[in-house]
Design a protein around this nucleic acid. Sequence first.
DNA 1: CTTATGCTTGACCATGTGGTCAAGATCAGC
DNA 2: GCTGATCTTGACCACATGGTCAAGCATAAG
Lengths: 211, 211
Amino acid sequence: MTDKSTAPPAHSTRIQQRNRQRILAAALEVFSRFGYRGATVAQIAEAASMSKPNLLYYFKTKQAIYLAVLEHTLTQWLEPLQQLDADGDPFDEIWRYITCKLDSSRTAPEASRLFANEILQGAPMIHQFLATDLKTLVDEKCTVLQRWIDERRIAPVTPIHLIFLIWAATQHYADFQVQIAALGQDTSTLFPDGEQTLKTIILGGLRPQPQ
Amino acid sequence: MTDKSTAPPAHSTRIQQRNRQRILAAALEVFSRFGYRGATVAQIAEAASMSKPNLLYYFKTKQAIYLAVLEHTLTQWLEPLQQLDADGDPFDEIWRYITCKLDSSRTAPEASRLFANEILQGAPMIHQFLATDLKTLVDEKCTVLQRWIDERRIAPVTPIHLIFLIWAATQHYADFQVQIAALGQDTSTLFPDGEQTLKTIILGGLRPQPQ
DNA sequence: CTTATGCTTGACCATGTGGTCAAGATCAGC
DNA sequence: GCTGATCTTGACCACATGGTCAAGCATAAG
């Protein structure tokens, strides 16, 4: 008893794992839809089929929930870019990255929206992450892209803006889903058509021009 | 006196115009940064150098302020696409549209972020606008793009996904400004480099391929 | 069974929020 | 100056929100 009696115990029971999981899933849903300030703890509790005090038994503050789900999301977010292989074929690698991000937008749009919300509101919680972990990774991959350019294997563009373009184009399908739906796209052909269009334009635009 | 005495008068005085203007400017700043639910009336009043009751004298509810600034923004947002000329050169027209949207992202990023926030949160206020006005315009311009494709003047892509790509790529510079800044871009060459990259890739990717 | 630990919740509180109101300050027209 | 309409605000209210707490419930080990 070195602690306040209301603190969750250090070791992880079955119930604890299940409930933390449920909370994180519910929090992702709610935070991604309303942003940090717009979301309420009661809403998250409701979505997790749990009373508010019970939720706060597992995560002591709203911010703690947010940080937990955000961290989980960021890890997922980084992964695809890490796999960009300097030794592979430029077009294969870039295309694999694009399709991977498109898949994320289709299968896990909430994660993208959570991230978008955080950035839109000035990234108050992940400024550090952006300026360190992400910047390191992006710098590294920009070097790779620049080498491909120097070797005349892809068209000469500013590497980081190519990355921005890929991020923008792929995440758009998650972040602006409502707009896309309102414009009445046939949902069955949406992603195949989008994928084909990105392939034509981005890969086409990256073809090195003979002198 | 057919009205409650607290209602602003119908005709528009000097003071009224000036104050409404100040409120809309302040509201754009605050709403674009925190979203509808995240923004507070007190914050907007503060930003407009005005007491809260005074602000509510001009706009009766928070929602009324939001709708006013949103409507003003949407009109601006539509304009560039309307100018896409079916009789012009495809590459000139598309490029003009891209540079126009890029300019908006540089000179008025708040407007883009306001819009992005609204869409991200499910577009509760502008669903109607998206499904009617915007859809009509987009359908019309898709027809134009499709004709250019049929005439073999640009590469065969799904027109609406080309539009999505342009929206995504250009608005990214406004909506994700914080992320871009955190990645340490030299702000003086940011937009020229971005513009050049988009020109290379999008216009390059749209070149019709011989057979 | 008993007991100790972990889990759950109704009731509660302090704070912040959107919005009101009545009374005072300012201004245009006389 | 005077008068009536417009503008401004301190004080206030009802309600929602993040967070607490003490007491009750479940459960696994003996």
